[in-house]
Each structure stands twice: as C-alpha cells, then as structure tokens.
Write a protein that binds this DNA or RNA. Structure first.
Lengths: 206, 206
DNA sequence: CGCGAAGGTGAGCAAGCGCTTAGGGTGCGG
DNA sequence: CCGCACCCTAAGCGCTTGCTCACCTTCGCG
C-alpha cells in the first residue's frame, strides 16, 4: 500500500471527500513545517482548492489541527486500551502495547508528529480536552505495569516515573523515524518492546 | 540560584550585555511559543529594547536561533564527551553520561526545548552544521555502550538502535519536564540512569 | 424545467510580519 | 571641546497572513 493510500485510509471516516483532502494536506504540511509555519494557502493548494474553500469545511486553521489531534489521540489511546484489556501475562500485554504503539508512531510518523508535537498550538479549550486523553493513555500503561508489579513479574521502584519514561520513549519515535531509514516500523516496535521489558525489570526469557 | 540568574550564567560568554539579553529573551519566547510563533517585536520587548535594536546585534531572527542552537548543542556534546573520556567502568560512565545529560535537559528545559525541537527552523547551512554535532553526540554514547559490550558488562543485541533509544529517551525530557513538577532534575537523572543501565542489560548491583 | 442547497472561486481587507532607514544621544580619545 | 564610533529609537516599507464576501457552478428533486 502506497503512502497516499495509507493516508486516505487513516482518515476514511472524515467526510465529505473535500474535508478529508484538506485534513491529509494539513497533516503533511504541519508535519513538514510545523503548524505556525504552514499557511492556509499551502494547505488549500495541496488539497487542490482555492484558499477560500478551506473555510467552507473548517471555521479556522486551528480547528483543522484540533480535528487531526483529536482523531490521532483517540487512535493512540485505543491501541493502549486494547493492550491493557487483552489477555496474557503483564509482560505479554506490555510488550504488545509498546509494539503496536511504536509501530503506529513509525508507520504514521507524519500524523504522529503533528499529534505529539503541535498541541501547544491548540486553543485553550481544545488543549485541555486533548490533555485529558493523554492522561488516559498514561493511566492505561501504568495499569499494565502495576499488574506486573502485583504479580511479581516486574521490578519497578518508581511506577509513575517509569510509566512516564516508557511513554516518552515511544512517543519520541515520531520525531526521529524516517520512512527511508533502514528500520521498518515493525522492527522498531520489536526492538522497543524488548527494551521496555528490561526497563521494568522483567526477567523472563527474551 | 534564581531562574533568571541561572539563565544569565548559562549565556555568560555572549557579549555585549545587550546581545546576551536578546538571547535569553529569545530562548524564553521560542520555548514558550515556538520559533515561528515568536515575533522579533516580542523578543526585543522582553529584552527591554525597540524592535530595531535586535538587528544591531543579529542579522536575522534565524541567526538568533542559530546562536542558541549552536551553544546548546556544544554544551550537550561536551557533557557526553566528558562522560565517555572519564575513568571508571562502562556502566559507571554510561550512568554518569545519562545522569548529567538528563539533568541538563531538566534544569535548562527552556533552552533544551529550543535546542532539541526547533532545529527544523534553521536555514539549510546552519541545519547541516548542527546535525553534525548531533552525530557526534550519538557517537559518544555509542562508544560507551560498545565498551560495555566489549568487556561483557552489557548485553546489547542492537547497539545502534539502543543508542538511538537511549538518546531519544534523554532528549525527550526537555519536552515534558516542568519546573513545578514534583521531581527535581537530579532525581530524574538518577531514575533515568538506572533505567538505561537496565536497557543495556547491565546485571551489576543497582 | 425551475429552484434551492451545497460547494466552489477571485479578489481583497485589516492586521501583523521581518526588516530597513534616517537620525538622536552618549561617552571617550585627542 | 570636538568628532566619531557605538548603541539605540521612531517611523514605516513591502509583503504575507488568516479570513471574508459577492458571486458562480453543479446537481438532486418536485
């Protein structure tokens, strides 16, 4: 599947077609240059429209960012929630969480870059809502680690700090990952899952 | 030492006084809002000058960012080089590298945020130069890890990938660290040093 | 066919941007 | 005391920005 097809699928439930084209164009532009350095003319141009057409579908440029950030954060949270609620040992669930979370950040690194590094550009209300979703993500990972500590599989002196570090490590993949690097998203996910199991002091076979 | 005094000391070798005031003002503004969202009027205002005064000391706004980025990267590289060339076992040197590198990112999180997350705003030439410094940082950390693998103290299947992950973990501290959080820079450094030793499979007493 | 809703355009407004220019203190060597 | 180098300001230039407005097309439906 080509990069363009993947982008289209990712935003499949944004309708109508013109709005979706605007979102995908905005994601690319924001990821390349950052929110503030991107102009509405650039977004509209990439979507094949005049600058004015943008405002038929979105009230402001910030609302476009909010849409992207909202969808992205809910997707990321879903990944972590599914891993937490899965069956298997804490180690298996933590590894699965990291594997899929990291793979998403690598595979959709353009979207992820916007989602993770442009929240400061959101308006106050939108920002607060997104921060809530981020707290939920933190809680999901922390729950898995706490499970592992309870069963004695993990050895973690500072659960909150370690949770923070694990999430931070995974999120930062969006910053450095490049599609033309030598690692595939799957390989990075696998590498990171192993590293995180070590961070929580899991002594099982690797 | 107050936050302001610490900022002044950090940029002590930028002269004359007016230029230093501009740099510290720019660091604060860039860290709060990002490079592109910051205006030259804002920077000059924080430094207590008229907008035109900025251009007596710096040719462009980008040159200010370049100055900040250059000084910051050289400082970070120094920290890692000193740790690599220090004496002690690989584990001690790696722990020291992470401890001081992380503490710097937490203590100077405003500067670090600009240094680590605004390089995309640099002009092409400046960008290339800074990327060179970052490669050197990577090499310094990798050297310590390779030492540990050679002595058998570390167990690292993928040295390049693990180096990348360790640096990524430390750098991202600049994004989430807040001065009014409950952890001190020293505590975060200590926590992270322990986590990194686990990541490289160090089995020594912790 | 007539018509209204939906989705688009070209032109352009007010505001704010990075940066320049002409000129005004201020202090220091001769 | 002069003159000059240095640092600074007020004003503003040319341009780009986010966004609006008057108007045009396309199309499903009675």
């Amino acid at each position: 599947m080509g990069a363009e097809a993947k982008r289209a699928e990712e935003w499949a439930d944004v309708t109508p077609d013109a709005a979706r084209r605007l979102v995908t164009a905005a994601v690319q532009a924001f990821a390349e240059r950052g929110y503030h350095a991107t102009t509405t003319r650039d977004i509209a141009g990439r979507a094949g429209m005049s600058p004015a057409a943008l405002y038929i579908h979105y009230k402001t440029k910030e609302e476009l960012l909010y849409q992207i950030s909202g969808v992205g954060h809910r997707l990321a949270l879903d990944i972590l929630r599914r891993a937490r609620e899965g069956d298997g040992s804490p180690a298996e669930r933590l590894a699965e969480a990291v594997r899929t979370f990291v793979r998403w950040h690598a595979e959709h690194h353009t979207t992820a870059r916007v989602v993770q590094y442009e929240l400061g550009a959101l308006g106050e209300e939108h920002h607060d809502e997104i921060v809530g979703l981020r707290r939920d993500s933190d809680a999901a990972v922390r729950a898995i680690i706490e499970d592992g500590v309870a069963t004695g599989d993990f050895d973690v002196p500072d659960v909150r700090g370690t949770t923070l570090a694990v999430l931070s490590l995974c999120i930062d993949v969006a910053r450095w990952f490049s599609a033309d690097g030598k690692r595939t998203p799957g390989e990075v996910g696998e590498l990171y899952a192993g590293l995180v199991l070590r961070m929580v002091g899991y002594a099982g076979q690797e």
